[in-house]
């Protein structure tokens, strides 16, 4: 019983950074921009988040630092890929490489320091319910925020005019421009939202997951978040399922090793990517005619004035 609860708790903790980062990337990609720099923005968010919290003693300020760091990183991307219309794939990859180096530089002074991790909710009575008590009423603020975030993104995308305009930019930027929508401004905002989310997801790692900073601690989570957006076929609902599924795989992989199951851990680590490939194949076979990916994804847009 206690083991099951512990596993569920650790799955939630492992899934939360994936969910936050992928939510941000989903919004970016829905506007038609492919930012492959999620890993880089996350790792810089982790270094700055830890630094902020360590200097001020406040987890909240640390998280804020993480968000701002991620946004600044994404602004570099926006300047290159949107402002100067450079190839988005190349720019995103460069951003990741740059972010890994930069985070090492920022975090060099913090390596070996420890923080008090983010506090968990405690509601007397409710949190003490066996099995579900701690899962539902005993999480840290990041977990609740991540769920509010994806619900909010779903609502904005499908229930508001702003969301409709964002989806329109991702479907056909030429049409959106012809109707008078500021495509590049909308995309810049979407990229910044994605950057902020990636930064927060990165900051979650040293602020709540493990209470210290080590270089390269994102360990490929940014790439999993990117795969997750494809896995979810750009839909918020499927993104939630995918995030917890991918989180579960990473946790079960640790336990499988402990239980002596004879599956190589490398295979388990590769599972999220394998799952994404399988989903892509299934989607392409089940295609009825509409396109699942935002039709303008990754294409350069230069408005004529």
């Amino acid at each position: 019983m206690e083991l099951v609860e512990a596993i569920i708790l650790s799955i939630l903790a492992a899934s939360t950074p994936l969910l936050i980062a992928a939510t941000g990337e989903l919004v970016t990609e829905r506007s038609g921009v492919l930012n492959l720099g999620v890993e880089g923005m996350m790792i810089v968010g982790a270094a700055c988040g830890f630094g902020g919290a360590w200097l001020t003693g406040s987890i909240f300020i640390g998280a804020l630092f993480g968000i701002i760091a991620g946004m600044l990183m994404s602004l570099i991307f926006a300047l290159m890929a949107l402002g100067l219309a450079v190839n988005q794939v190349a720019t995103g990859l460069a951003l990741t490489i740059f972010g890994i180096g930069l985070s090492g530089l920022i975090g060099a002074g913090f390596v070996g320091e420890r923080l008090t991790p983010a506090a968990h909710l405690y509601v007397p009575g409710l949190t003490d319910i066996p099995l579900i008590g701690r899962v539902v009423f005993g999480e840290d603020a990041f977990v609740y925020f991540s769920i509010a975030l994806i619900v909010g993104v779903w609502w904005v995308l499908y229930r508001t005019r702003a969301g409709l305009i964002l989806r329109a930019c991702g479907d056909n930027h030429v049409s959106a421009h012809a109707l008078g929508y500021p495509v590049l401004r909308i995309r810049t905002l979407a990229v910044m939202f994605g950057g902020g989310c990636a930064g927060l997801a990165g900051a979650y790692l040293p602020l709540a997951y493990t209470p210290f900073f080590i270089p390269g601690m994102t360990a490929g989570r940014g790439w999993i978040a990117l795969a997750l957006v494809v896995f979810a076929s750009w839909r918020p609902g499927r993104l939630v399922i995918g995030a917890y599924l991918f989180g579960a795989v990473t946790i079960l992989q640790l336990h499988a090793q402990g239980w002596g199951v004879g599956i190589p851990s490398q295979f388990m680590s590769a599972l999220p990517y394998l799952a994404t490939v399988i989903v892509l194949v299934l989607l392409s076979r089940a295609r009825t005619g509409g396109s699942t990916a935002p039709a303008a994804l990754g294409t350069v847009f230069v408005p004529d004035r």
Partner: peptide, 18 residues
Amino acid sequence: FQHFSLFDNLTVAENVAL
């Protein structure tokens, strides 16, 4: 427009709303 400024993956009503 000659080359329609429409969004293929949105509905007719969404296209008009835009």
